[in-house]
């Protein structure tokens, strides 16, 4: 009787060993300056969960016609960003924003250009069903994965059940995404004690000059939004109107909060691995770092919500000299971690 009750009271308990905890290996610079990554209580990281998440991230069966995976727009060889201005979905439709790189996401307390996702787990639900992205349905994805010869066992090992659903898929992908830690750039190495970050002394003098322009409020004043040596995320995780337009086709954060004071504000992207993540800005309007720096130097446009930190707006910006701009760009390039690419 007890046995019958046990069977009839819900999904049968599947006899499988607990998954192995995944220990995040923090690079020295992250360990020194940042708190540990916050892991949700209901999605602890496990070796099996991370492996499953990576497999799902690369799996085209998460799209309607089996042609697109997460990695199609977040290319591992491009610091998990898209080198196209706008990603093209399975129906040939174009998105309206540039795909953000997936770097050091575990510390990002805001996600996406407009802040619309509240967690990595929550974010993973959207692209699968978005008509301009992977354009399928979760029941279809669940059916395809359940029919696979490997997935049910992998979910069993990671989550203790062969019943595949969208929540577990998103949890696995989020676990994998939290492992994407990048902190091995020349500038990281310099902070760790390597002379000149491994570059030549002449180059490094210019990098340090660029760093000073980055940090000087009367020069670039980049650090108020983009971090500093003690904030190695190189983003403040907040939203700003950085003077791209006088009016907004895309309201950004304002579209989420419905507060007009937030119109034209977008999340500050990380400056890590910029050499691989062009084009730049939420709409990918700039193809080079030189264009980006020129924007802040002479190209600012005024609007009611422009950030107070944007200076000399009437004159177009901070008016850097050519040498200052060149050195600033070189400093930005020193934040490139080639070992992160896969």
């Amino acid at each position: 009787m007890i046995s019958v009750l046990g069977i009839s009271c819900g999904p049968s308990p599947e006899n499988t060993p607990d998954p192995n905890p995944y220990e995040i290996q923090y690079p020295a610079i992250m360990d020194q300056y940042l708190p540990p990554i916050r892991i949700p209580d209901d999605n602890p990281m496990t070796v099996e969960g991370v492996e499953l998440g990576e497999k799902l991230f690369l799996d085209t069966r998460l799209s309607g016609d089996n042609t697109m995976s997460c990695a199609s727009c977040h290319l591992p060889e491009a610091s998990f960003s898209d080198q196209a201005q706008f990603s093209i979905g399975i129906d040939g439709l174009e998105g309206r924003r540039n795909a953000m790189p997936l770097v050091n996401l575990g510390w990002m307390f805001t996600l996406l250009w407009d802040g619309s996702a509240t967690s990595l787990e929550n974010q993973a639900f959207t692209p699968v069903v978005d008509p301009v992205e992977m354009h399928t349905t979760w029941p279809d994805v669940e059916a395809r994965l359940s029919a696979d010869s490997e997935y049910p066992d992998l979910f069993l090992k990671a989550f203790g059940t062969r019943n595949i659903d969208s929540t577990l898929v998103s949890k696995a992908i989020a676990q994998f995404e939290r492992t994407l830690i990048s902190a091995n750039s020349p500038f990281d190495k310099f902070l760790g004690g390597l002379p000149n970050g491994g570059w030549t002394e002449t180059e490094w003098e210019r990098v340090l000059n660029g760093r000073d322009i980055f940090l000087a409020e009367e020069k670039g004043d980049c650090f108020h939004c983009h971090g500093s040596p003690a904030n190695p995320l190189w983003t403040d995780n907040f939203f700003h109107n950085n003077g791209l337009d006088e009016t907004f086709d895309d309201p950004g954060l304002g579209g989420v909060t419905k507060n007009p004071a937030d119109n034209g504000k977008f999340k500050t992207p990380t400056l890590r691995n910029l050499l691989f993540t062009a084009p730049y800005m939420h709409d990918g309007r700039f193809n080079t770092l030189e264009e980006v720096v020129e924007h802040y130097s002479t190209g600012l446009k005024n609007s009611p919500t422009i950030d107070p930190l944007m200076k000399n707006v009437a004159e177009g910006g901070v008016q850097l000299t050519q040498q200052e701009k060149d050195d600033l760009v070189l400093f930005l390039k020193s934040l490139t971690d080639s070992t992160f690419l896969r």
Partner: peptide
């Protein structure tokens, strides 16, 4: 002390060393 407090670093609250 520069860089001493991880939560403040994460909050981008640092004052430049210069």
């Amino acid at each position: 002390i520069s860089g001493e407090y991880p939560d403040l670093n994460l909050a981008n609250w640092n004052w430049p060393d210069m």
